[in-house]
Nucleic acid binder design. Structure first.
Lengths: 242, 242
DNA sequence: CGCTATCTTGAATCCCTTCAAGTCGCGTGG
DNA sequence: CCACGCGACTTGAAGGGATTCAAGATAGCG
C-alpha cells in the first residue's frame, strides 16, 4: 500500500498534476480534491472494473497502463482504448460500468469516492471544464481509432500503433528512438482488431524491411520514422489518437 | 430559409427540446440560448463542415440526419458517427473541425455563434452539465461501434446496424416494424467498414432467410426481431450505440 | 416511358484467419 | 549460476470471408 498523500504539499511531486483532471485547479481547489483522494495500486493483469459493476468511485491514472475492453459472448475481445497516466477512469453521469478496465502493467490510481467527487464537481467549475475537455479529446481519439479499425490494412494498423506508442512516450532511452511496448502481441491484436499471429507477422516483416528493429520481444527501435509514418496511412501525423 | 425563432414562446414546438443541449435549461436560460440561435437548412448531400475548418459556430440538429466521416488520402472513407436530431455538432475547446460533417438527408440545425455560446456556457452550468453528459454518451457509442468495426462479421455488422436504425426510430408506419433507411448502400458500407457490394449481399441473404423484407430499396420490414438481435452478436440489446 | 444512378449478383482473387508446429526468452528452482 | 519449463512469440500451410472486378437489373426520376 501507498503512504497517504502529503496534505501539507499536495501533489507537488505528482507526475500527472499538469495533465490530469486537476490541471486547471488552483491550490485551494486542489486541497479539496486531495481531501477525498486515495492512492490505490493494481498489479499487472488485475481487473480494475468489470462491465456491469456499479460505479462507486472515479480515478486518475498516476502511473502504468490500463486497457478498456469489451468481450463478446464467444470470447472475441476488442480493446476500445488505452488508459494512460493522467487519463480519467469513470463514466460521469452513468450508473454502471460499460467496459472492462484491466491493469496491463502495474498501475497506480488516484481514486475518489463517487459522492464526494460529484459534489465537488458542482462546486468547482474548473473540474467540470477540464473533464469536458478530456472527454472531447477521448471522443476524438476513439473516432480516429474507428478509421483504423474500419479501413486500415494490417500493415497500416501496426504502423499507426507503433507511431502512437512512440508519440505517447514509452521511450526508454536518450536518443529518442527506442521504446517499450506495454502490451503483449495478443493485447495489441485485440486493440487493432487483428489476430496475434497477424501482429507477429507484420512486426517481423517490418523488421525485415528495416523500418524497425527488436531487441527483446517488448523493446523496439524505430529505424525509419518516415517510412513508419508513411505506412500508417495518416496524412496528418501526430493526430489526436491517444 | 426559416422564419426567425418565435421569441415570445421559445422552442415550444421544437421536436428536440427535451433531448438536446437545452434539455436541462429553465425558461430563463432557454431565452438566453434562443437569443443567440438561428435555424439553418442544408440539403441532402451538402457539406456542413469540412475537416480543418475553423470552428465558428456550434449547432443542435433539429431534424434530418448528418454523417461524421473521415476520408483517407486514397479515398477510403469511414463514417465515425451518425448525427441525429437532438445531437450536438461542434468540438468544444477545439479550434479546428476534426471530421467532415455532411447532410445525409435534408437537415435543419439550430446554430449558435461560437463566442456568445462559449460565453453562455460559463454562465449557465446546466448547459455545461448537459454537454458533458452528451459527450459521455457519444463516447460510449463510439466505443461500442469500435467493437463492431474490429470484431464483428459482415452479417453481424448489418444486423447491428438495422437494429440500431429500428431503435433510433426511423419508423415509418404504425405497427412498429417498418423503417426507412436514411443511408445509401455505400454510406452504410462506409459506416460499417465494408464495401457496398458486401452490404447488398448481406441484405439480400437476410431477406432470403426471412429475417427482414424490402419494399423499395430504402424501406424495410423487420419480420424476425429476435433473429435480428441474435445475429447482431450483442448480448445486451438496446446497448448505447447511437 | 426511357434514362441514369443505385443496387444486385456472379466469379475470381486476396488478405487475413485458422490450425499447427516449432522456437525463444525469461523467471524459477535446483 | 545454469538448467529447466512454461508462456509468449514466430513461422508455415491451408482455408475462408470479404474484396475486387465485371455485368446486369431495377427503381425512381424527369
Amino acid at each position: 500500500m501507498n503512504p497517504p498523500i502529503n496534505l501539507s504539499e499536495p501533489c507537488a511531486s505528482c507526475g500527472v498534476r499538469e495533465r490530469a483532471i486537476c490541471a486547471r485547479c488552483d491550490a485551494s481547489e486542489l486541497s479539496q480534491l486531495v481531501a477525498i483522494g486515495t492512492h490505490v495500486d493494481f498489479e499487472a493483469g488485475q481487473p480494475i472494473l468489470w462491465r456491469g459493476d456499479e460505479f462507486t468511485s472515479f480515478a486518475s491514472v498516476v502511473s502504468g497502463v490500463a486497457a478498456l475492453s469489451r468481450t463478446m459472448d464467444d470470447g472475441r475481445t476488442q480493446v476500445v482504448g488505452l488508459v494512460l497516466p493522467s487519463d480519467f477512469i469513470g463514466g460521469l453521469g452513468r450508473e454502471y460500468v460499460d467496459f472492462d478496465v484491466t491493469a496491463v502493467t502495474n498501475v497506480t490510481l488516484c481514486q475518489f469516492k463517487k459522492e464526494p467527487f460529484e459534489e465537488l464537481l458542482e462546486r468547482v467549475p474548473h473540474l467540470a471544464q477540464r473533464l469536458l475537455e478530456m472527454a472531447m479529446d477521448e471522443l476524438n481519439a476513439a473516432r480516429e481509432w474507428m478509421v483504423l479499425l474500419g479501413r486500415k490494412t494490417a500493415r497500416e494498423k501496426i504502423a499507426t500503433f507503433l507511431a502512437m506508442i512512440a508519440r505517447r512516450s514509452f521511450q526508454s532511452d536518450t536518443d529518442g528512438h527506442e521504446f517499450d511496448l506495454p502490451l503483449t502481441r495478443e493485447e495489441i491484436a485485440d486493440f487493432l482488431g487483428l489476430t496475434y499471429e497477424t501482429v507477429s507477422r507484420q512486426l517481423s516483416s517490418m523488421k525485415k524491411e528495416g523500418t524497425i528493429d527488436f531487441t527483446g520481444r517488448r523493446h523496439f527501435i524505430i529505424k525509419d520514422q518516415e517510412a513508419l509514418e508513411h505506412t500508417s496511412g495518416d496524412s496528418t501525423p501526430n493526430s489526436s489518437i491517444i
